[in-house]
Amino acid sequence: MRTSIWEKPGSIAEAYWKQGHADFPVYDMHGHMGSHYAIYFKRCEPADVVAHIKRAGVKRLVFAHHDALWGGLRNEKVWEMCCQFPEHLRMYVAINPHFPETIKEDLAKFDQWAPFAVGLKFLADYHRVAVTDKAYEYALKFANERGIPILNHTWGGSGFDGGPIMLEVTQKYPRAKFFIGHCLYGDWDYASRVVNETPGNVWLELTAIPGERGIIEMLVEMVGSERILYGTDMPWFDEFQGIGGVLSAKITEDDMRNILYRNAESILGKNW
């Protein structure tokens, strides 16, 4: 047998295998919090989630609380959770298009929630409202004026946040920073187009992809590792599985560093 990736002296993979972390911080740009109707979670509250991400060398997890997305929990409560773990937790303000007054009230508090609120989260597939719908306009204009990120759940073929819709909205709001959650899973052609046909305001976010053989390699080839962010859907997926998926991809260590931390730092800075 050849020397495996985990045994290459001085490599990131070797560091992770031996120590569970490397010489850089990891930023997980796609997380959640709290229980979810469709799954049993043993670890989904802030203390347990933070304990898990710390083990894997993750410096920051940016999340939207499940219940805030469903409309049962106000974003202010999520901000309070972040305040308890200021070194590790940051939040996306959950935007539910069925609650327009809540959107306005919460975005009015966005600045008060600094530095914990770093952007917005859209979950159009679950809310059953297309991102191009007027119901999102207020939030989109807000993000566009401020140049802040919007993490969008996206999925190939979706009539709510699929490729053509995301291409339209990313072109229409060129100052908002769009994180394409799940990389438009399965529609790799549009994943490439939303990056390559927009003015530098779009990044692909990897949740659910690390571990799939050859996909990260293909995305790096199509859009460049500078346009890809790391995420796990925490508490859905294990951090070591996700990081392991990036380290197992046949890409350069420079690409891995871009994905795991450099790109997040170039968007949000080193101290956010």
């Binding site: 571990g211 799939e212 053989r213 050859g214 294990d238 070591f240 599985q241 392991g244 998926g245």
Partner: peptide
């Protein structure tokens, strides 16, 4: 072949 061998090893 859907998944690579490595991600689950580190997990």
């Amino acid at each position: 072949p859907r998944y690579n061998h490595g991600n689950g090893m580190l997990q």
